[in-house]
Write a protein that binds this DNA or RNA. Structure first.
Length: 460
RNA sequence: UCCCCGGUAGCUCAAUCGGCAGAGCGGGUGGCUGUUAACCACUAGGUUCGCGGUUCAAGUCCGUGCCGGGGAGCCA
C-alpha cells in the first residue's frame, strides 16, 4: 500500500483507508486511548491520529514519543472534536525509529533560533524551519519558471575559477596539495604542482561567464552557489550563498531595472499564491508586519532615483547621519534604511552611481562621471539586487581596467567578447537568501539556509 | 575586523551589596479527561563556558581565551 501524504489527507474531501508515514510531534494520553500528532513534512499541519489502547497497539504506542518515526494505517474519518476536519483512527502501527525523550533535543515548546542553529540537523523538523524549507523550494521553482517564461536559458557557470581578481570580495583558495607539502615549495614549484597549474578559487560570481553566454544565447541566467571569504559577521552575510544572475544581450540599464522589479514582484506574488499556510506562520510568529510588507511590495511601482538624487533626498532630510552624505559618496546602511524604510517606505532602486565606487565592468555614462549601475534596496534587508549595464566598448573597458589597476592579460577572453561582435548587455545578481528573508520575515540569513556557512561555522 | 551586550538544569531565564543554586517549560512516576501549547500531584536533574587571579568566601569582582547576539564595515 502506498503512503498518503499528510497534505493530501488534510486537504481531502472524503475519508477512506490510508497509510501514513511520518514523525510524531506530540502524544496526548488518555486512560483508554491516545492522540498522536503526525507530521511528514509535506505541509505545516499535522494529522491527529487516534490510537486505542488495544493489546496489539499499546506496546507500539508506548515507543512513540516526540520525534519518533512511524507508519500509521487506518481509517480517515471526520473528526468529532474541534481543531481539525479530519483524523485517522489507527488500526495498525509500525515503529521505524524511536526518539529517546530524555535526550531528544526538540521539545513541544518553542525554541530560540540560536539554540536551533546548534542542532541544524534536527531543526527542519520544527514548524518554522519546515515552513522555511518549503518556501525556499517554492521560491527556487518560481525563479526558474519566471525566467523560463521570459525565454531565458538556464546556464551553469563554473564554481571553480582561475581568475583571482573577479571582484572585490575575498575568495576561498582551492588546492589539492597537502598544506605541508605546498609550504615547502617555491612559488614556481607550487604552481606547477597545483591541479590546474595555477591558483584556483571558488567563484564569487558567475557574471563574467554569464556575459559570454548572453552574447551567444541572448537571455541567460545562472542560479547556483557563490562563495565569499569575507570575515562578515552579520545577519545578512554568509560565506556560501545562492545567487540568481540574469544577463541580457541587447539590453540597457532600464531593461535591467525592469527585469529586477518584475522578478522580485513575481516571486513575492508566487509566495503569496502558493505558500499561504507557511506564510501565515511567519506572519503570526516571526514578523507581524509580513503580510502588509509583501502586499505593499506589489501595490505600486518601486521608486527609482539616480544616486545624485538620493544624496539630495538624504541631505534635505534634516537627519544627522553618522556618515554625512555628500556628492559622490557611497550609501551607507543607515542611508539605505532611511530611504526605503522611512522616506519612501517601499523598495527603492538607486541608479547611476559615481564610477569611483563601482566595479570596472559597469558601463560609463555619457557624463563621464557615473556608471549605469543599480542597487535594489528593500526595507529591513537593504541591498537585495545589484546590477548594471555592462561596458561593451573595448577602449572604454580597457581604460576602466587600467584605472582600477587590473592587469588586462587574465581577462583576455572577457575582452575578446568586446573585440568580436560586442553588443550592449546588462544583468544583475539577486541574493536568494535575502529574498527568502524578505518573503518569510526571518531576520537572520543563518535561518534561511539549511546548513549555513559563516565565519567559524562549518558544522554539519 | 571594530564597538556594545550576553554565556547559570535538556530549553527559556532569575539569583539584591561578594555570603546556602532557583522558577517555568521539558523529562520520569502516578492520576484524570475526545484531547489538541491538554490538565492535576509527586519527583529527578548543576564542572554557573574554559584558564588564571583577588578574597575568609566568587554565578557575582579583575585579566584572558572561546562561543552566541546586536550594531558597523564589506557586499548578494
Amino acid at each position: 500500500m502506498q503512503r498518503t501524504r499528510v497534505r493530501d489527507i488534510l486537504s481531502g474531501d472524503q475519508g477512506g483507508h490510508a497509510l501514513l508515514k511520518g514523525w510524531v510531534r506530540t502524544r496526548r494520553d488518555s486512560k483508554d486511548f491516545s492522540f498522536l500528532e503526525l507530521n511528514d513534512g509535506s505541509c505545516l499541519g499535522n494529522v491527529q491520529v487516534l490510537v486505542d489502547h488495544t493489546p496489539e497497539l499499546l506496546p507500539l504506542l508506548e515507543r512513540l514519543n516526540t520525534g519518533a518515526a512511524c507508519a500509521v494505517e487506518g481509517e480517515v474519518v471526520a473528526s468529532p472534536a474541534a481543531g481539525q476536519k479530519w483524523e485517522v483512527r489507527a488500526s495498525a502501527l509500525t515503529v521505524f525509529g524511536e526518539a529517546d525523550p530524555e535526550t531528544y533535543p526538540l521539545q513541544k515548546k518553542r525554541h530560540s533560533d540560536e539554540f536551533l542553529r546548534t542542532i541544524a540537523h534536527l531543526r527542519p523538523r520544527t514548524n518554522k524551519y519546515g515552513a522555511m524549507l518549503r518556501v525556499r523550494s517554492e521560491m527556487a521553482l518560481a525563479v526558474h519558471s519566471f525566467l523560463h517564461g521570459r525565454g531565458f536559458a538556464h546556464i551553469h557557470a563554473p564554481i571553480l575559477t582561475g581568475s583571482d581578481c573577479e571582484g572585490a570580495g575575498e575568495m576561498f583558495r582551492v588546492s589539492n596539495l597537502e598544506p605541508s607539502t605546498a609550504a615547502a615549495m617555491t612559488p614556481a614549484e607550487r604552481e606547477a604542482a597545483e591541479f590546474f597549474g595555477r591558483p584556483a578559487s571558488l567563484t564569487v560570481s558567475g557574471q563574467l561567464e554569464a556575459e559570454m553566454l548572453a552574447l551567444a544565447l541572448g537571455d541567460v541566467y545562472t542560479f547556483g552557489p557563490t562563495f565569499r571569504a569575507e570575515n562578515s559577521n552579520t545577519p545578512k552575510h554568509a560565506a556560501e550563498f545562492w545567487m540568481v544572475e540574469p544577463e541580457m544581450a541587447f539590453a540597457d540599464l532600464k531593461d535591467d531595472m525592469d527585469l529586477a522589479e518584475e522578478l522580485v514582484c513575481s516571486l513575492v506574488r508566487h509566495a503569496l499564491d502558493h505558500c499561504v499556510v507557511d506564510l501565515a506562520l511567519f506572519g503570526n510568529f516571526v514578523d507581524k508586519t509580513l503580510m502588509a510588507t509583501l502586499t505593499g511590495i506589489l501595490d505600486q511601482p518601486f521608486v527609482r532615483l539616480p544616486h545624485a538624487e538620493a544624496i539630495r533626498v538624504l541631505q534635505a532630510s534634516g537627519r544627522s547621519f553618522e556618515f554625512p552624505v555628500h556628492k559622490g559618496s557611497d550609501l551607507q546602511t543607515e542611508h539605505e534604511r532611511f530611504l526605503c524604510e522611512e522616506h519612501f517606505k517601499r523598495p527603492v532602486i538607486v541608479f547611476d552611481y559615481p564610477k569611483e565606487i563601482k566595479a570596472f565592468y559597469m558601463r560609463l555614462n555619457d557624463d563621464g562621471a557615473t556608471v549605469a549601475a543599480m542597487d535594489l534596496l528593500v526595507p529591513r534587508i537593504g541591498e537585495l539586487v545589484g546590477g548594471s549595464q555592462r561596458e561593451e566598448r573595448l577602449d572604454v573597458l580597457e581604460a576602466r581596467m587600467a584605472e582600477a589597476g587590473l592587469p588586462a592579460e587574465p581577462y583576455w577572453w572577457y575582452l575578446d567578447s568586446r573585440r568580436y561582435g560586442s553588443a550592449p548587455h546588462a544583468g544583475f545578481g539577486l541574493g536568494f537568501e535575502r529574498l527568502l528573508m524578505l518573503v518569510t520575515g526571518i531576520a537572520n540569513i543563518r535561518d534561511v539556509i539549511p546548513f549555513p556557512r559563516t565565519p567559524r561555522n562549518l558544522e554539519f
